[in-house]
């Protein structure tokens, strides 16, 4: 399909993200990329589970254990914020399907704001732990915790920079078949980040405090 076609909501294709060969490649390629990200996080989860609560001989478990450290209300708030941001990125995709560019930009913008809130809470949480003496070099447990959750946090940062760039670069361009796949894979990525967090919330926080 020609990239220069002027689109209206009437002639905008059903699956705009896959209407061009490049778009289709990007769509397939990104799913494949996500499958390797799954293995990456699986390896980190396995490492964390092997090392949790483990530290130098005589580490004070009353102070430095999953039960003593984690606070479920904070983790729950973070979960809700990130889940909501996933929902807002779905709204953006819904508007993309209807060729409503303003809707896409607005909801993507809201997604970024929610992502920033999540990131702020995560930084607060990390700061809190480090302040309590639970730094990155404290023990095998602390290294594993910060690496797993921090890698997720790094993915959030990458996602935020990426989506912000998309919003910025397309402000003047409007929606077309060249940038529709870009929005689509960015929203896929954001969902993936969300799914990983659901596992972190379950495996790290819920199982840590209640298990």
């Amino acid at each position: 399909m020609d990239l220069n076609t002027k689109f209206t909501p009437q002639n905008w294709p059903e699956h705009a993200e896959q209407a061009t060969m490049e778009g289709k490649n990007k769509f397939v390629g990104f799913w494949i990329f996500l499958s390797c990200e799954v293995v990456l996080f699986a390896s980190l989860f396995a490492t964390y589970l092997a090392l949790k609560d483990s530290g130098p001989a005589g580490m004070d478990l009353a102070k430095y254990s999953t039960k003593a450290l984690y606070e479920l209300p904070l983790a729950f708030a973070m979960t809700m914020i990130l889940l909501t941001s996933s929902l807002t990125s779905v709204y953006a995709m819904y508007h993309m399907k209807n060729f409503n560019f303003k809707g896409v930009q607005t909801w993507m913008g809201i997604t970024v704001i929610l992502g920033l809130c999540f990131l702020g809470l995560e930084i607060y949480e990390f700061y809190h732990y480090v302040h309590a003496g639970f730094g990155y070099r404290h023990s095998a447990f602390s290294s594993a915790f910060f690496t797993l959750v921090g890698t997720h946090g790094l993915h959030v940062i990458i996602g935020l920079v990426w989506i912000s760039c998309l919003i910025f670069r397309n402000m003047k361009r409007g929606l077309n078949l060249y940038n529709a796949p870009k929005y689509f894979v960015a929203s896929l990525y954001w969902h993936f980040i969300d799914v990983v967090w659901v596992f972190i919330f379950t495996v790290v926080y819920l199982m840590g405090v209640l298990g």
């Binding site: 490492t47 092997a50 090392l51 483990s54 530290g55 130098p56 001989a57 580490m59 990155y136 070099r137 023990s139 095998a140 447990f141 602390s142 290294s143 594993a144 690496t147």
Partner: peptide
């Protein structure tokens, strides 16, 4: 572990070299 002082494989810090 080597360059930033983490403890994944250092057993004295609770790490596990089999990982």
């Amino acid at each position: 572990d080597r360059m930033f002082g983490a403890n994944f494989f250092d057993h004295t810090m609770g790490g596990n070299t089999i990982i």
